[in-house]
Each structure stands twice: as C-alpha cells, then as structure tokens.
Design a protein around this nucleic acid. Sequence first.
DNA 1: CTCAGTTAGTTACAGATGAAACTAATGTCA
DNA 2: TGACATTAGTTTCATCTGTAACTAACTGAG
Lengths: 166, 166
Amino acid sequence: MSTQPEPPPPDDETTLRLEQFLPYRLNVVGFYASRALGRIYSERFGIGIPEWRVIAQLGEFGKLTSRDIGELSQMHKTKVSRAVGELEKRGLTSRSENREDRREAFISLTPRGSRTYAEIVPLALAFQARWTEGLPADDLRVFERVLSILAERGRHLAGGYHESEA
Amino acid sequence: MSTQPEPPPPDDETTLRLEQFLPYRLNVVGFYASRALGRIYSERFGIGIPEWRVIAQLGEFGKLTSRDIGELSQMHKTKVSRAVGELEKRGLTSRSENREDRREAFISLTPRGSRTYAEIVPLALAFQARWTEGLPADDLRVFERVLSILAERGRHLAGGYHESEA
DNA sequence: CTCAGTTAGTTACAGATGAAACTAATGTCA
DNA sequence: TGACATTAGTTTCATCTGTAACTAACTGAG
C-alpha cells in the first residue's frame, strides 16, 4: 500500500481541492484518453495521435489542405506539417498541388491510407463505446452538451494558435 | 475567411466524425484548460502547470513526499522531481529528510510558497467560475458525475505510469 | 546477518513540441 | 506595375517529456 496523506482541510475559499478542480480534471481525463488510444494506434498501426487525426479528417472530408486539417483538428501547423510528412513517407497520404494557389497543396488518403482508416475507425468507435458503456443516455447527452459549451468557451479563454496575440 | 471544407458524409459505421469523438473532444478541452491556466501561471508567477500542481497539493495537504505528489496529481515521477527541484530553487518549497526512511523526503511550502499559493488559489477558482458561469447547476452536477466515471475508467484503460506493463 | 528484490528519487538520453524565423506564393493598394 | 503586407507550409532551435538506467536506502526470507 501507499503512504496515506492526511485528510484534506475543510472547504473554504483559500484552499483549492485539486482533485475537484475542473481544468485539472479535464486535463487528466483527456490525457487518459490520448494515452489509451495512442497505445492502440502505435501498437497496431505504428502511428501517433497527430497522424491519426490527420487520417481521421481526410477519411471524413476526402481532400484537405494542411491548413484545413490544422483548423479542423486543433493542431499547430508544425504538428500538421510533420504528421503529413510522416504519413506521406509511409505511403498513407499523397499531395496534389493546387494550381489556383501554389502555396498550398491538397492532401488525401492513398488506397493504402483508406484501408488503414477503415481498420482504425471500428477500433476507435469500439473504444469510445466501451468507455461510455452503461452510462445513462440522458446523462451522456447532458455531458456532451456541457462539454461543447466548455470547449467553445475554452477555445476563447485559451486563445487559438494563431490569434493568440490578437 | 478560410477555405470551407465540403460537408461531411452521412453518419455510418465506417466513418468517424472526429469533432464528435469523445477522446478527441476531451483531449482538446483539457488542452484548452491547461493552456489558459498555464498562461496565467507563467505570466504572473513564472511557473508551469507541473509546478502549480505541486504547490496545489502542498497547499492542500501541507507536507508530502514526491511519491505522494505524483500519485495525487497524476504526474510522472520525473516530472515531479523536476518541478520540486525548480520550486526549491525559487525558494517556494523546502525539503525535510524523513528519519524513518531516508530514501524519501517531505516537501512543504516555505512561507513564500504559501503566499504564492494564497495568491494563485483565488485566480484559479475565478477562472473555473468564469468557465462554468451560467451553466445550470443540475447539468453541471451530471457533468461532474460522468466526468468522474470516465476518469475512473480512463485510468484503467490507459494504465497508470507504473503498472502500465502489468 | 546477508543477499536478492523492491522502492524513492535523480539523471542521461532520445523523441515530441511550439515559438520564431524563414521561403515561396498570393493579395492589395496606389 | 511595383512595393508592402499576408498566407501556406517548412525548418531551426530551445524546451519539455517519458523511458530506461542508475544510486541509495529499505525489506524480507533464509
């Protein structure tokens, strides 16, 4: 067993219970989610979370610029750049130049990338299902609604990657 | 304005909507939380999230070993080690050897550390209050309950830092 | 007591990350 | 047309992070 810390002091406004502090809790849960999924992705497919997000967006939308991918999946442009580079190296995505604007390129899944996507999706959905298994549908609806609101507010509180200095 | 991606395909079992995928959403929200708070901590106090967590636990429990801190705040032991080292260097925490077991040491806040704690707590609570402002108390209760369950399950799905190979 | 096994904590190392600088292309305004 | 600002994307660099290896101390079976 472990050293048991003494019971916490009473709840007043000068003390904060970290284990009840929402930002902390959200961060911890999000971390668990990433780690568990990341393990699946890396063990079975040899990719990480950023690569998964790119694949997921391409599987959903078909053809996107790196900029769009970053926007949609909330990733820093350097992270997108590296993830796309890695996926391309592994033959899961390909680039096609945009003649209308030669700064950007359209990224899409190769046939092999699509196959990987088709393999991952059921695993991801099963993981989610297992995680939320047995929770009352009503509660889950409320949870998701609140989560959306917190995400929306959080985006502003945190500032995006780009407008952070605005 | 930005390039608008085409509307997503219909919802079937072979496609996954990342923006509705729970692990993704939790991770993003947790990330916003960390970033917003981290900004406050670093701007006003020159510390990061790991240091804040250490301070928070010490402010709550008074005196802990590094091991306890890691357990309580879900941080890897190397992260704790470095955070404690940093705080000590800045004179916010101090170490006292445990005569009963000289492998470990008790960490506690110095007077200066306690003052910093007292300054941060109201800011943190205000941040949380602002984030959840206006949300129905009932919804928030449901949200927190579901979050607890997801955290508990997530801890097992992800595996702890230590038992990960068990 | 002794030696193998475990535990608290640190350090070395390699990989991931984001800010800032950079390149190349486009947009704008006179 | 010709500067100047903006944007997509890459690269550089410094920092943060976790794994693994390590040290020092404790535990327990014999």
